[in-house]
Design a protein around this nucleic acid. Structure first.
Lengths: 193, 193
DNA sequence: GTATAAAAAATGAACGTTCATTCTTTTTTT
DNA sequence: AAAAAAAGAATGAACGTTCATTTTTTATAC
């Protein structure tokens, strides 16, 4: 137990260090030596936990993505109405993106650069399935616009990524009012009529 | 003339090569030697045109950003009504983002990573001034929601970046109908009432 | 509990490679 | 023939990864 515990701590420290450094410097400007230093570990030790640098960043991506979607769907259940379900999910996503900025910023960087390899990227997308199913249901019930998931995502979810980045850079502060407003805009842009 | 012409050609070739390679590999995974090769130039020659690699990518960013905003505002004039002006600008932005994918993708990557240094990033933002002024006017006239420019941008413009990236990755194809729909959603989410 | 040996985990130094940049020479332009 | 532009080769630093050892943990015997 003690042994396993310790290993998990180190693994977590490595992932956290990776996220932090990649956020500030980008993937290729983050040397393994710095990751090791921040995680208080020898560079060689990283290779006991991960195959190589690419594997480290892929795993970091997938873990953060999982944490994100787990959080997003934690209070949602398929019995909810489409509009309630969407509101619940949207607000959880907003919460995550604006409060767990470090993780959210890392995901944004992963999604906007060639940093993550294609298989891991594909794997990451799968985690959004519950949202896509909700949208499908909404389309069948005539509540949500019959347009592609990409368009729905672009209108309703993606604006949150932009706001998160701006807030993270200190360009603006998003308050509760803003979020209420943003939620309404999101719902208005995907609901039918 | 011949000499100057030749120089500008080489400079352009270097910028284009940078954009292309950075899009596919990221900034730090794009060696000067490859940029030189793609531009059909010796690595040493790059340093006759740019101070160093950072300078090269900063200048590439600023030039693409200029091209983008020039295109966005080319058919807009301040005499137009707020709603007409917005429609004109929005559709030009959409046009640029979805047709000049290479440039647009490069900008997205610059805006979402620590690749560009802070002064150049600040400089790049200035180019959006006409849009911000239009929004100011709209707010004063009671046509546009009295919320921060960041929120307006997040709702109305940023979704286009997401769609561009998805289309570029081959995940989806955006057609004229989609764009008409997206425009309406954009306007609905920022207009007052 | 304590001593001991085998196994596992962790380390710092070293290796080979790659890269941004510079240097020296050659080619082109004036 | 002088000056400017361009080139390829060279340089030194930084990087990802591996190697040879050392330290820590685990398992076993008393």
């Amino acid at each position: 137990m003690a042994k396993l515990q310790k290993s998990i701590d180190k693994r977590n420290a490595l992932i956290r260090a990776t996220i932090n450094l990649v956020n500030n410097n980008g993937f290729h400007a983050t040397p393994m030596s710095k990751i090791a230093k921040m995680a208080k570990v020898s560079p060689a030790t990283i290779y006991l936990y991960f195959e190589n640098k690419q594997d480290l960043v892929n795993k970091a991506y997938l873990e953060v993505k999982s944490a994100f979607t787990d959080y997003a769907f934690a209070t949602y259940s398929e019995e909810m109405s489409v509009s309630t379900g969407f509101e619940i999910i949207w607000k959880r996503i907003a919460d995550f993106k604006l409060k767990q900025c470090e993780e959210a910023l890392f995901l944004a960087q992963c999604d906007n650069t060639p940093m993550i390899d294609e298989p891991s990227r594909k794997e990451g997308i799968k985690h959004l399935q519950p949202l896509l199913e909700l949208w499908d249901r909404g389309k069948k019930e005539g509540i949500i616009k019959p347009i592609s998931d990409y368009l729905l995502y672009a209108y309703a979810i993606n604006p949150l990524s932009f706001l998160m980045i701006m807030q993270q850079r200190g360009a603006c502060a998003i308050d509760k009012m803003d979020l209420e407003e943003a939620y309404r805009a999101a719902w208005d842009s995907i609901k039918l009529d």
